[in-house]
């Protein structure tokens, strides 16, 4: 299972890196979204993988998953959303001001 999760993180990272290197704004935004999935998952795995033991206090529970990375990732997800929103608006602004959607504002490439 660990190998599978590692693979997923790797694929998400690779997709994120590739798209971030594109020249148009929209793929870059998608790339950043991929990278935030990858980073959030990676942070989450700092608490290792636990199945069926949510960190909700219960007398019958055999154990708990590590709540700390979860708390950190929860806010990270929300902040990633704010970042994505900001970047896409920036892209729109650039489109309006420069007349194209190239990341450097050049229309030739």
């Amino acid at each position: 299972m660990e190998a599978l999760v590692s693979l997923v993180i790797g694929v998400l990272t690779a997709c994120g890196v590739y798209l971030t290197l594109r020249a148009r704004t929209f793929p870059v935004v998608l790339g950043l979204t991929f990278l935030s999935y990858a980073v959030n998952l990676f942070l989450f795995t700092m608490g290792r993988l636990t199945i069926g033991q949510p960190p909700i206090i219960d007398k019958a529970a055999a154990g708990y998953a590590d709540p700390l990375p979860q708390a950190l990732v929860l806010t990270a997800i929300v902040i990633s959303f704010a970042m994505t929103a900001f970047v896409i608006m920036l892209a729109l602004k650039a489109r309006a001001e420069l007349g194209n959607d190239h990341v450097d504002g050049r229309d030739d490439a």
């Binding site: 693979l7 694929v11 990272t13």
Partner: peptide, 16 residues
């Protein structure tokens, strides 16, 4: 991207 993904996966693996 492949190198970065591979690196990310290996890092995650060694942590996990």
């Amino acid at each position: 991207a492949g190198l970065a993904g591979g690196g990310g996966a290996l890092l995650a693996w060694s942590v996990l």
